[in-house]
Simulated assay, not measured.
Amino acid sequence: MASPPKAKPAILFIEGAWRTFTAYDPFFDIVRARGYELITPLLLTNTPAWKTLEDPPVDDINHMASAARDLADSGREFVCVMHSYGGAIGTEAMAGLGVDERRARGLAGGVTPLIYITAFMVEVGKSLEDTAPAAQIGWIGYEGDLKVFLPGFDIGGKWYNDLPKDKQQRQLAQTIPHPKAGPFRRPEVVAYDKIPTTFVYCTEDNAFPYTVQRALVAAHKSNGIHVDEETVEAGHYPFLSVPEKLADVVLEWC
């Protein structure tokens, strides 16, 4: 007798900075239509609560780790999909929660794989500001306790260059503040050294350029980290421009 088909894992999604889920909804709709459960605990720094946080990146990490532990402790296996800044949060939050790690401790459930979509695979002790200083990026800076876009730059062309201009402007109008503390967080642990990891390159990304994405992954591979690789021809938000294609790529790993 044929064994029953394996149940589809849940997908825990960690979004990037400056945006809520309106930037991801086309992708979410497709994933849900294909029968996957999406768990989407919005980063605290993407809510009005960010103003009350004592340590925004740590609060985000703890928030996502709590959501992941709840899934794992219920015996669920799930995939963690991260975008942009969400990679920095998920890298720490998923540490210790891998399926194999938990099984070795006699526990069911856990995360596998990690999927980074043009997202930051941060290193222990090395912040985003260390890796990609705002001064070198040029169109990003700091004002008070915020990380901001500097005037005089086509931010729509950085983030949404593969969308028509009118859609770029509609997306930019939904941008929300992002605290300065996030890029200065130096990770204490990482998850990708013990959990299977896939990186999805976005070849047309003007915010996190393709060459920089590849250099990031190459550096990890040179340190002995195994990273599976996928590619989509899209800008920084493939969730908006090529949601069907992105879903095809991501769900192959789920």
Rank of each mutant, 00 (worst) to 15 (best):
A23K: 11
I89V: 15
I39R: 12
E123T: 08
E129R: 09
A135C: 08
E15M: 13
F13C: 08
M82Q: 11
L42V: 10
R19S: 10
D130R: 00
C80M: 15
P113K: 10
A65R: 15
G16K: 06
V81R: 01
V58I: 15
I11K: 06
M94R: 02
G106S: 04
Y24W: 13
D70K: 06
A33P: 01
H83V: 01
S84L: 08
E54R: 08
F28T: 02
D29I: 02
M94P: 00
A135D: 12
G110L: 07
E123Y: 06
T47C: 07
G86E: 02
G35I: 00
R102C: 01
Y24T: 12
H83G: 07
T131R: 07
G98I: 05
P133T: 11
L97V: 13
R76F: 03
H83P: 02
S74H: 06
S66R: 15
P57H: 05
Y85W: 12
H63T: 05
S74N: 14
D70E: 15
D55V: 14
K51Q: 14
T52G: 04
T45M: 11
W50Y: 15
D73E: 15
H63D: 04
M121L: 11
Y116I: 09
R32N: 08
A119F: 01
S66M: 14
S127Q: 06
I30S: 01
T112S: 15
L107E: 13
H63Y: 07
K126P: 03
A135G: 07
D100E: 14
L53D: 08
I11P: 06
D73Y: 05
G75V: 10
I115D: 01
V124I: 13
